[in-house]
Amino acid sequence: MSGRPAVVQDAAIALIAVTAVAAVAVLGDNYVVRLATTLFLYASLALSWNLIGGYAGYPSFATAAFFGLGAYANGVLQAAGLPFAVAWIGVAGIAAVCGALLGFCILHLRGHYFAIASLVVGDVLREIVNSWTSLTGGGMGMNLPLIAFSADMQARFFMGGFFGLALAAFLVARLIDRRPLGFTLRCIEQNDTAAAMLGADTRFAKSAAFTIACIFAGAAGAIYASWVSYIDPTDVFDVLYSVKPIIMALLGGIGTVTGPVIGAVVFLGLEELFWRNFLETHEGVLGLLVVLLVLFLPDGIHRLLTIGRHRTWRAAAS
């Protein structure tokens, strides 16, 4: 950590990022813009998952549930006549409430049981969306109103939207990392019994991390729904939306601020490579990547780069 105040650093990061994105918007072709949009979507999801999965060490598979919830809540709110901007904010509120409630219900579970419970939430929501045809269109999917820009402008608009979300997620993660909440979450990850015995309100800390993660996942789903303008249950509740952020965080280094961002960049690069070269088997290749990653690089690329500085840390962990 340098001596400069965090606010100045944050402002500098934001400024550089905004400039880079503006440059892409003006100079980039549609392929580059689409790539950047996906990158910011991935980074948002990975950063949000990292709060509960990385810092607190709770292996959440609920990202897809909240991504889908956000997408459908956006669709329903807009179908009720709300403008998209209001709908997105509404979705964030809905995701916050649902996340807090769900967290209250399942955060007392540990390990495998928490993982399964969080995974099942997505399945239950998908079934509900599938059967509540009058509201959601069921398996037929749901159309969302297009935003009245030209196609090129739209692409850049959504890139900006996801960028804003990713930047917010990054700054929130950075804030939490430096505040007592981040420290508490790290302690929970290492030994939650000990943390509670010292007086830490572990339930509040876990709920806060989980709820914030749900808000970002839900907002990402909402923007995604507006972007693609057509959603169906198998797409937005796809379990890969839960798994990809985990892979990204693992790639970049879990429980760090920059890890998920680095992971999102690397993952997107690999994914582009697979999509192009292994059209039919790209999921299998993704699986292979996951296996290799877990076996040979469980601490992420991040750790590989900073190995010298953290030697004692590694010695302790092994």
Partner: peptide, 27 residues
Amino acid sequence: ARTFQIVQPFPRLTVLDNVAAGILFSR
């Protein structure tokens, strides 16, 4: 407060931060 029969440190934090946790968590 209590100590555990089987010690319960935060294994990857420094000794200093383990103790700081006690101070921070007890507000």
